[in-house]
């Protein structure tokens, strides 16, 4: 499967979903899509019919506000009927604006930033206790890294030598109030995680081939957790959304919807990014 094409097809679904429901965190959805697609269509052992399999890989979307991208993937993979998403954000729906583990395929509730990594550590630690073969994946935002709990987790994961844990940072350099480096600076991020004794891979996070290679490399590593610093573009795939802080949470107009879908169609036709 051409993962970049898949990611762009799902970007179209995300934008349509947000347009229809009149709400959603569009910028972060578009930046994280290649990461999620590589995990769900290539890397992870998760089957909609076997979400009770104790050996399934575990996934937590710690930047829970990007749930729309996860929804489109889970729907496409048959975790629930696509029509279910018609109720997204509507009265009485379980398809809310953050991951909700009443939904098939979602392991843990999230939405309050800074929880995912420590929870993932617990899952990976249980795997070690049980000699299980599953791997645990967690995706965080870069603004999220300001939460102290992230760094408590950074410490614990290497202390417990969790080589069955792979974390990803969606390094899009933006958060609600603007540039992450203006709001609360994180550089040098690679050195910071290395100082906590993680194995760090610094890659293009919108390149599915680079992502595949990084996830494969992490699987081989022994004795340490892996951090993939996925350098992404917030709003990736749609020129007028890219790198703009005000698109963190914004609904496209009719014209913007048409323009966005057209740009993505052109990329799909060309067979890539």
């Amino acid at each position: 499967m051409n993962l970049s094409v898949k990611a762009n097809e799902l970007r179209k679904d995300v934008i349509q979903l947000i347009y229809d429901a009149k709400g959603g965190h569009i910028g972060g959805d578009l930046s994280v899509m290649d990461i999620l697609v590589t995990l769900y269509y290539e890397q992870m052992n998760v089957d909609p019919a076997k979400m009770d399999d104790p050996n399934r890989d575990r996934f937590i979307l710690s930047k829970g506000h990007s749930v729309e991208s996860l929804y489109t993937i889970l729907a496409d993979k048959g975790f629930f009927p696509k029509e279910d998403l018609d109720t997204y954000s509507q009265f009485g729906s379980k398809y809310i604006g953050h991951p909700n583990n009443k939904i098939n395929g979602i392991e843990m509730n999230s939405g309050s930033l800074g929880h995912g990594l420590p929870v993932a550590i617990g899952m990976a630690l249980a795997g070690k206790m049980d000699n299980a073969s599953y791997r645990t994946y967690v995706v965080m935002g870069d603004g999220e890294l300001a939460e102290g709990s992230v760094w408590e987790g950074a410490m614990a994961a290497s202390h417990f030598k969790l080589d069955n844990l792979c974390a990803v940072i969606d390094r899009n350099r933006l958060q609600i109030s603007g540039s992450t480096e203006d709001v609360m600076a994180h550089e040098d991020l690679k050195k910071r995680w290395e100082a906590f004794n993680w194995y760090v891979l610094d890659i293009d996070g919108n390149d599915t081939e680079a992502l595949s290679a990084a996830f494969e490399e992490a699987k081989e590593l022994k004795g340490r957790p892996t951090m993939i610093l996925a350098n992404t573009t917030k709003g990736c795939g749609v020129s007028f959304i890219e790198n703009r802080a005000n698109w963190h949470h914004k609904v496209p107009t009719d014209a913007e919807l048409a323009g966005a879908l057209k740009e993505l169609d052109q990329k799909i036709l060309k067979g890539g990014r």
């Binding site: 603004g143 300001a146 939460e147 102290g148 958060q175 609600i176 109030s177 992450t180 709001v183 609360m184």
Partner: peptide, 27 residues
């Protein structure tokens, strides 16, 4: 504020009184 100036309607304050405004990020 903690990446909350927009939601708090305090962006105007941050712009007008930069010396009396502290941003700590999502923390």
């Amino acid at each position: 504020c903690s990446d909350s100036r927009g939601s708090a309607s305090l962006a105007l304050f941050a712009d007008a009184f930069p010396k009396q405004f502290v941003e700590v990020g999502i923390a």
